[in-house]
């Protein structure tokens, strides 16, 4: 089993993700340069955090046109698990693999601190080992993580259980006071309709060892490894039944990735 970590110019959490996968969770990981023509036969893809292309124009706006993103779009459409962390989430939004957009944080400050997330959905390849309602502590580090979805999109996300993580109090209470960046409905992470593509602003890969302040992020990566093992074990990728529906959601973009 191998998990690919995409590397864009300006990615800076790629090594964190690689380390957490390879040395903490103990699975095979490989970097994939953004100009690569394929994903190297990986079972899953992580788009890591950072500042791809210096966040020029908009966060993730240039990276989504990188050659590797065409392969990621195909991989996602075929049901492959794709996780976007922080800047990776922003890239997934720009690519139209997830709906909505990012605004500057409420208060305009770059926020770098530990937050608490409540797991809202367990039926994804990234939360399969978590309990519904479980509270995870992990860091955020972003200036543009104020997630926005218009009312119709929000209704669709809520109705289909596609909100995966919400910013919460340490006891799991959802309250605007704990909505650290002002996101719509305190959303920290969402999935696509099939559930195989997930994006979140907090950093599970930086919260995999007690020495780093929290090991709560491990459940996300361990869930992924378990899901990949199950898929390898002959279980059909039921999500693949959705065909190409995973692509092009959320935006009215005419551009080809």
């Amino acid at each position: 089993m191998k998990i690919a970590v995409a590397v864009f110019p300006g990615s800076n959490c790629d090594h964190d993700a690689y380390h957490a996968l390879k040395h903490v969770v103990g699975c095979d990981a490989a970097f994939v340069w953004h100009k690569a023509g394929d994903l190297g036969g990986a079972d899953a893809v992580i788009l890591p955090g950072g500042f791809s292309y210096g966040d020029y124009l908009r966060t993730g706006a240039i990276a989504r046109f990188s050659p590797i993103m065409a392969r990621v779009v195909e991989f996602a459409a075929a049901g492959g698990p794709v996780l976007g962390i922080c800047n990776g989430f922003q890239v997934l939004l720009e690519a139209g693999l997830l709906p909505g957009g990012m605004r500057r944080n409420r208060g305009l400050k770059f926020i770098c601190e530990q937050v608490h997330l409540r797991v809202e959905r367990t039926g994804t390849p990234f939360t399969g080992r978590a309990r519904a309602g479980q509270v995870l502590r992990m860091p955020i580090a972003h200036g543009e993580g104020n997630y926005y979805a218009d009312p119709a999109t929000l209704e669709r996300l809520e109705a289909h259980g596609r909100v995966v993580f919400r910013y919460a109090a340490p006891d799991g209470t959802i309250d605007e006071r704990w909505n650290v960046n002002g996101s719509t409905a305190a959303i920290a992470g969402i999935s696509n309709a099939q559930g195989n593509v997930v994006g979140l602003m907090p950093h599970p890969e930086r919260a995999c060892e007690a020495a780093l302040g929290s090991a709560d992020g491990r459940v996300v990566l361990e869930s992924l490894v378990e899901a990949c093992a199950a898929a390898r074990g002959g279980a059909a990728r039921t999500a693949a039944g959705g065909g190409g529906a995973a692509a092009g959601e959320g935006t009215a973009r005419t551009g080809a990735a």
């Binding site: 939004l93 935006t251 009215a252 551009g255």
Partner: peptide, 13 residues
């Protein structure tokens, strides 16, 4: 306008 649709603007926001 095509460039704005594809890259310069994010139609979501």
């Amino acid at each position: 306008a095509e460039m704005a649709d594809r890259l310069l603007a994010n139609p979501v926001i």
